[in-house]
Every structure is written in structure tokens, then in C-alpha cells.
Write a protein that binds this DNA or RNA. Sequence first.
DNA 1: ATGGTAGGTATCCTA
Length: 291
Amino acid sequence: METARLRITTWNVNSVRIREEALRRVVREIEPDVLCLQETKVENSRFPYALARDLGFSHIFVDGQKAYHGVAVLSRLPLTGCAAPKWCNVPDCRHQVCFLPGDVELHNVYIPAGGDIPDPEVNPKFRHKLDMLSALAEAFACRRGDGARLVLLGDLNIAPLETDVWNHRALLDVVSHTPIEVEALRRLQESYGFIDAVRAVIPPAVRLYTWWSYRAQDWAKSDRGRRLDHIWLSPALAPALVGAEVHREVRGFDNPSDHVPVTVELDLARVADRAAATVVRQRKEKTCESQ
DNA sequence: ATGGTAGGTATCCTA
């Protein structure tokens, strides 16, 4: 019988070029079929393609720029329909969309960190963060109910739950956990009815972090983390969810990123015939175009 | 309460 299991991992790698050893170990230990990276910090022409191919990823989709941001999808499976949308009239490389076999539409997203001051009137970086979230929400709201098999993942730079930060009260006015951001993230999630795959597996009552500052003397001992990296599924794909993991141990690797990988495992045999979903989606796309 | 580290780039920006 044909295997329908799919392991998809997201990781803010904080420079793909300096992370070769950690990248090799992550792929060896996690064995993702699809590895989505953020903060690659490299132009496409200088991306380490040979390393990616050596790790078994023969399908590589990059959208990078010099020094800042940058996203990449490394895949063992063919990628089709690749696009790198831009938002808010900003040329940053922060979003990729592509299709995996099984009609799975993958969105690799890197939301702006937002700077230090949580006020959009005085801080343009915070304004940009909120604007990109609302622009994405508007785009997905237009498609709501189209039955697509969506995965939206990446560094969303927001920790929405009280248990997603080491101290809820202390972080209420710290960018990444302010009520205005949490509300903006909630609106994006609700725009299409996305399911938080990680919290569907690991209960919200459990403290869970994906990022620890480089500035701590001992990140593991102080454990002042935040859950900034997420994997969401559309309602049509949610029944395929069979597992989710946060790879905390990766923060303890030599020369680590400050973020750790997050993985979901999907079993596409658990979702309905994709031909039916495709028909619904095409009908909905026509509706949106005519508006 | 403050400042702490890391990566890329080219001397300071971003996270």
C-alpha cells in the first residue's frame, strides 16, 4: 500500500549558511520530508544548494535577500505552483506558497519581529507586523470555505497563549505577547478557520516554547522561552494530523539557532478524496475573482 | 531596572 505519511518541519534557522552542522543534525534526527526555513539571510544565488541536495532534498524553492529575512522550502517530494507573494508594498522575502503531492498547499511565513515598542503609531516595524497579519487575514478570508488542504507554518513572531511564554504578566507589554498582536494573530487564524496543529496535539495547559533568547546565561536553566513558531492546518486537512513535536533539544546543539524546529506528521489517507476538494476550491476562486 | 548575545555587513542594523 502506498504510504501517505508526510512529515513537515518549520525552523527559523537564523542564517542558513552558518547553520550547516545543526542543519545536518536536524535532518538526520527529525527526518522531515519537507523542511521550511525562515531567516535564511542569503540571496538566492548564494544559497547552499549543494548542502540541501546532499541532505536529500532534490526540490528546492528559495526566496532570499542579502542579510535579512529570507525563506526556503526544501523537499524530498516535488513542489509545484511555487510563488513568493509580497505584502504591504514591502519587498521583504517573507512568504512562499507551493503545492505538495496530494493537493497540499503549503504557506511558509516569516512575520516581522516588530521591533521593541508595541505601538504602531511610533514604531514602523510594529506597524508592519500588524499590517502583514491583517493583509494575510484578508486574503485567506476571501477563500474561506473553499475546502483547500492548507498548511500555514513559520515564524509568526507571536506567542498567543499564556502558556506560550515563561511569564504571561511580565510579557503583556513585550512585543510578541501584547494583546494587540495576539488579537491580530487570532484574526488571521479565524480568517480561514485554521487549526493550531501543535496545540491540537500538545494541550494548551502545557507550557511550550520554540524560542529562547541568545542573551540568557543558561537558556535551559532560566527557561525564559516563547512559542513563536507555529503550524496551522485548514479544516479540510486537520483530520490528517497524526502527530506534532517541538524539538527543544535542538536549542542545545553546538552553534544553535535561537529558534527550534517544529514538526507535524500528516496521514493524507485520512482525508477525503482530493478531487472533490479541488472542485469546491475552483468554484470558490471564481466567486472571489468576480467580486 | 538593566543589559545581556548572535548574524551579516562593513561600522551598525536586525532579531
